[in-house]
Simulated scan of single mutants.
Amino acid sequence: MLPACGLGGKTLLTAGLAGLLLYLAGHPLPHKGQCGKLLVLASVLYALFKSLGVLGPSEVEVSDICERRKMNVAHGLAWSFYLGYLRLVLPHLEDSITKFHATHQANSPFRSRGSRKLLILIPLNANISHKLEDEDDNIHFYDNLPNNEINRAGVRGRVYKHSVYRVLDGDGKAHECVVEYATPLLTLYSMSQESSAGFGEPERRQQVLLFYRTLQDILDHSLECRNRYTLILLKDEHEDDPHVLSKAILRHLQQQEKEEFCLTPPPHQETEHPLSSTPSSLPINNYWHHPDPMSREPTLMFSLERPLPLKEPVENTDDYQGRQ
């Protein structure tokens, strides 16, 4: 942490040399006749600091400047992934799942609302496998969603597709979901393998985290993609577990199912009064009347009749004429 903040060995060595020069100069500040010596000393110290690289920005400052000025590789990749892919396909994801469900209704896929979102996997090490079943044998390829054809950059009917996977839990129950890796991470991983790119493993991990934060911030402000995606950051803390990928996917699916709210009223709302022998709902003029409206949950009632116009005010002058 200290070297990253600019307090490394060079800084300490330069501070020691500066103290030694000030000691040898004999503290020229109190004497008015030694201004020339002070200027020479300041020039020597500046040249010494500059040659040792102490006056340059630290790693933390460089990272902060690049992040604020949007100069990082991950920042550009996140915007490219959003503008060139997610913003195009996510608005059509619900229709594709509906068409897929109509053709696979016997198997009843996508039972939960969470499985109807696009799960985007972002591994911290940027190591992506092209087949999910190669990483976890609890994940099996099921089928592809219907293709989306979009005219893009001069290509007529460019095809965009998503794959459906079945993820098995501990009880062997299958959960269908649309899941894929964030493809820009392939670029980050390839850059770290090229010596000419000057992009090592520490820089790659930092860029993956920045890619995740930037993409999350972009999608949070996107109306086209809202409630249609889930970002899953995969850490490499449990690489020894062969089912770490399926557990991460199932954990997010279960979390989304718990966060759902039932917007439809319960099927049995009307209950009989415990002290009354008559039913709580009686037909009156072909309408059901509830003598105890607080015995059930409130529901919204809409009238199908057309609204009537307001009655215009009618002037009545009989009282005024009678007074005269």
Results as ranks from 00 to 15, higher is better:
residue 171 D to K: 03
residue 79 W to S: 14
residue 110 F to V: 02
residue 241 D to G: 01
residue 36 G to C: 07
residue 304 L to T: 05
residue 316 N to E: 08
residue 320 Y to M: 13
residue 321 Q to W: 09
residue 185 L to F: 06
residue 289 H to E: 12
residue 107 N to Y: 13
residue 298 P to R: 04
residue 22 L to D: 08
residue 299 T to F: 04
residue 100 F to P: 00
residue 263 L to M: 14
residue 194 E to I: 03
residue 110 F to S: 05
residue 126 A to Q: 05
residue 217 D to Y: 04
residue 24 L to W: 09
residue 307 P to W: 07
residue 205 R to P: 04
residue 254 Q to N: 12
residue 279 P to M: 09
residue 91 P to F: 00
residue 40 V to K: 06
residue 290 H to N: 04
residue 76 G to A: 15
residue 316 N to A: 07
residue 110 F to D: 01
residue 254 Q to L: 09
residue 257 E to W: 07
residue 63 S to V: 07
residue 112 S to G: 12
residue 122 I to H: 06
residue 294 M to D: 12
residue 73 V to M: 07
residue 215 L to M: 07
residue 212 Y to K: 01
residue 176 E to Y: 01
residue 294 M to N: 12
residue 139 I to M: 02
residue 137 D to C: 12
residue 297 E to R: 11
residue 178 V to P: 01
residue 306 R to C: 09
residue 89 V to R: 01
residue 132 L to N: 01
residue 253 L to M: 06
residue 179 V to E: 09
residue 173 K to W: 10
residue 20 L to Y: 14
residue 72 N to K: 13
residue 122 I to V: 14
residue 290 H to M: 02
residue 187 T to D: 15
residue 94 E to G: 09
residue 221 H to G: 08
residue 178 V to R: 02
residue 237 E to S: 15
residue 53 G to P: 00
residue 119 L to T: 11
residue 179 V to Y: 12
residue 214 T to N: 08
residue 115 S to Y: 04
residue 24 L to T: 10
residue 178 V to C: 08
residue 231 L to I: 02
residue 317 T to A: 11
residue 224 E to M: 09
residue 147 N to C: 11
residue 222 S to Y: 06
residue 293 P to S: 03
residue 23 Y to R: 11
residue 147 N to Q: 10
residue 107 N to D: 10
residue 250 L to P: 06
residue 123 P to L: 03
residue 32 K to W: 14
residue 57 P to D: 03
residue 115 S to R: 03
residue 5 C to R: 13
residue 259 E to A: 06
residue 103 T to W: 15
residue 195 S to R: 06
residue 161 K to G: 12
residue 220 D to P: 04
residue 236 D to L: 00
residue 74 A to H: 11
residue 35 C to Q: 14
residue 196 S to Y: 13
residue 298 P to D: 05
residue 53 G to Q: 04
residue 306 R to G: 06
residue 153 A to R: 11
residue 182 A to Q: 07
residue 313 P to T: 12
residue 12 L to G: 06
residue 221 H to Y: 12
residue 297 E to V: 05
residue 157 G to H: 14
residue 259 E to G: 04
residue 284 I to L: 13
residue 69 R to D: 00
residue 259 E to K: 05
residue 16 G to W: 08
residue 241 D to Q: 00
residue 221 H to S: 05
residue 180 E to M: 10
residue 314 V to H: 14
residue 167 V to W: 02
residue 119 L to K: 12
residue 79 W to N: 15
residue 98 T to I: 10
residue 96 S to V: 00
residue 233 L to G: 02
residue 12 L to R: 06
residue 322 G to N: 15
residue 245 L to I: 05
residue 241 D to E: 07
residue 165 Y to F: 15
residue 288 W to K: 10
residue 45 L to A: 00
residue 143 D to S: 15
residue 271 T to W: 03
